[in-house]
Design a protein around this nucleic acid. Structure first.
Length: 519
RNA sequence: GCCGGUGUAGUUCAAUGGCAGAACGGAGGACUCAUAAGCCUUAAAUAAAGGUUCGAUUCCUUUCACCGGCACCA
């Protein structure tokens, strides 16, 4: 039975169009999902949308659409983005889905309630009629609401609260012990220092008259669930938690990995574990926290008009190029900057001149000198064409022996790649692939197979086999990142992507038009 | 205000108590299988000031700048 792997992105709030930041998150998740599948695991990859709240009802009103229609329309954009970027998600959950999501969110509520962790408390605050919501002093100018120009009323209302404070120590223990891993370490420290100060109970519901667009609190029609109990529960509701049969839930929970942005760290690393502990459910194993993307060094904002639109980029440059930029040019953990100039530079340097050109030159030589069919030479012949280790950086100095590419791929590149994957450092994983490309480009230079073929055809065959074999592995390692490019390379090589490397006996090369034309 | 982090080449990032590396971009060169790509060579950097040390970019202190978190005021 295959080991399971359950991973999720955060669910996107649908009050605006998908931007590059969400694209990055979902692409990262996709790479990890594809990688885990290639490792033979049974993967369940969830993404989706967070659709409730007063903000959405108000936005819907402005467009004149009923809120359900508005939500359908906006949620669809996120699903489209996933499709455009070739995301291999298994499921797409929407929190407005009454059949799929509500039962899970409500079951979780009942569990917390049965545990005695939900209690009613009156809340006193400044209520703005225009907002139909509480506002803080921050929203006021001269004591009046900035948006509505009205003086807010002081209103007292009853809400449910969740006893998050009770779980502070347990959560801290889980994070310190590694039961719940937070990556990178800087984010772990951040959340630990927050836990050090102690968690406060949090407001868990709102009166239904203020927020009708949401999940009703079980047994109290006057109240609607506030964001935590609703949105966070998507991770279990999508698996059928609260349904008659909880088959998927039983199989896949706990999550192996939640991928989130830094802005929602505390909800995932504090509130969500608290809820799960209260409900008596296991904690997720790992949370990967990524940063934000700026555009030309500035925060993306609608008013600045600098929102980088992933649809436009994919349309213009192709989904693979967008995936490449998000994964390799941006840190997997920190913030990053997008500019179209850098995008093009990186595309030309690495996709066109690097990967594309390498495939092209190997392809051409093998077509020209061997009619496209290159057979595997004897082991001795393969060992006789080592890489010049001056270029290889790795086994340097202490080793005097020389190694051929197939040996280095197996003993250096693959282990390093696996290691970077385990560390969830996708950027580094990409670096390793491009180091391999660089090594093989140098290898062509050293042996000059285009000259060698006239003097010693058998040796040239060994060199070109090594290059073709290297190309096969490049496609292999690339498959989670640029799946359709990897497929193209396999097709050029005339082999299937899941071929056993040690069983390969011959590559039958085909003509192709370049992988990535220069910009 | 408190806590934490960061500051290295034009840019993005490495590393180290003992000659500071890479990639992209720049400059030059020899080649031609290739997408005028690739290869080789080359210029170019430790924010500032003190301290510890034979030696500090690394450790310590201060200043400055930026980032993150928390809190407070409005």
């Amino acid at each position: 039975m295959a080991e399971k792997f359950y991973l999720t992105t955060s669910i996107a709030y649908i009050n605006s169009s998908p931007h590059l930041g969400f694209a990055k998150e979902i692409v990262m998740a996709d790479v990890l999902a594809r990688h885990q599948r290639l490792l033979g695991k049974e993967v369940y990859f969830l993404t989706g949308t967070d659709e409730h709240g007063a903000k959405i009802s108000r936005a819907a009103e402005k467009t004149g659409l009923p809120v359900e229609k508005f939500a359908d329309r906006n949620a669809e954009k996120f699903r489209e983005l996933a499709e455009v970027l070739n995301i291999s998600f298994d499921d797409f959950i929407r929190t407005s889905d009454k059949k799929r999501h509500f039962p899970g969110a409500q079951k979780m509520w009942r569990r917390l309630s049965e545990k005695g962790d939900l209690y009613k408390k009156s809340y006193r605050g400044l209520y703005c009629v225009g907002h139909e919501a509480f506002v803080t002093e921050k929203d006021l100018l001269d004591g009046k609401c900035v948006d509505h120009g009205q003086t807010p009323e002081i209103i007292e209302e009853e809400n449910y609260f969740f006893k998050l404070s009770v779980y502070t120590e347990r959560i801290k223990e889980a994070i310190v012990s590694g039961e719940l891993v937070i990556a990178p370490a800087s984010r772990k420290n951040e959340i630990l220092s927050l836990l050090e100060e102690g968690l406060e109970d949090i407001s868990f519901s709102r009166p239904a008259r203020d927020i009708s667009w949401g999940v009703p609190v079980p047994g109290d029609p006057e109240q609607t669930m506030y964001v935590w109990g609703d949105a966070l529960a998507n991770y279990v509701s999508a698996l059928g938690y609260g349904q008659e049969k909880e088959t998927l839930f039983k199989k896949f929970w706990p999550a192996d990995l939640h991928i989130i942005g830094k802005d929602i760290l505390r909800f995932h690393a504090a509130v969500w574990p608290g809820m799960l502990l209260s409900a008596g459910l296991p904690l997720p194993k790992k949370i990967l926290v990524h940063g934000f993307i700026t555009v030309n060094g500035q925060k993306m904002s609608k008013t600045l008009g600098n929102v980088a639109d992933p649809f436009v980029l994919a349309e213009k440059y192709g989904a693979e190029a967008v995936r490449y930029y998000l994964l390799r040019e941006l840190s997997s953990f920190g913030d990053g900057d997008f500019t179209e100039e850098k995008f093009k530079e990186s595309y030309n340097a690495n996709l066109a001149n690097g990967l594309g050109n390498f495939v092209s030159r190997v392809n051409k030589m093998i077509l020209q000198y061997f009619d496209g069919a290159i057979e595997k030479p004897a082991p001795a012949a393969l060992a006789a064409v080592p890489v010049n280790l001056e270029e290889v950086f790795i086994f340097k100095k202490e080793t005097v022996e020389y190694f051929p590419p197939d040996y280095l791929i197996e003993n250096f590149f693959i282990p390093e790649y696996q290691k970077a994957m385990r560390e969830l450092d996708l950027q580094k994983t990409g670096d390793i692939i491009w180091r391999l490309i660089g090594m093989l480009d140098g290898y062509i230079q050293d042996y000059e197979p285009f000259k060698l073929v006239k003097k010693d055809k058998e040796k040239a065959r060994a060199v070109l086999w090594q290059l073709a074999f290297g190309m096969f592995w490049i496609a292999r390692l690339l498959a989670p990142f640029l799946p359709s490019t990897a497929e193209k390379i396999f097709s050029i090589l005339g082999v299937s992507g899941d071929a056993k490397p040690e069983k390969l006996k011959i590559f039958r090369f085909k003509e192709h038009k370049g992988l990535f034309p220069r910009l």
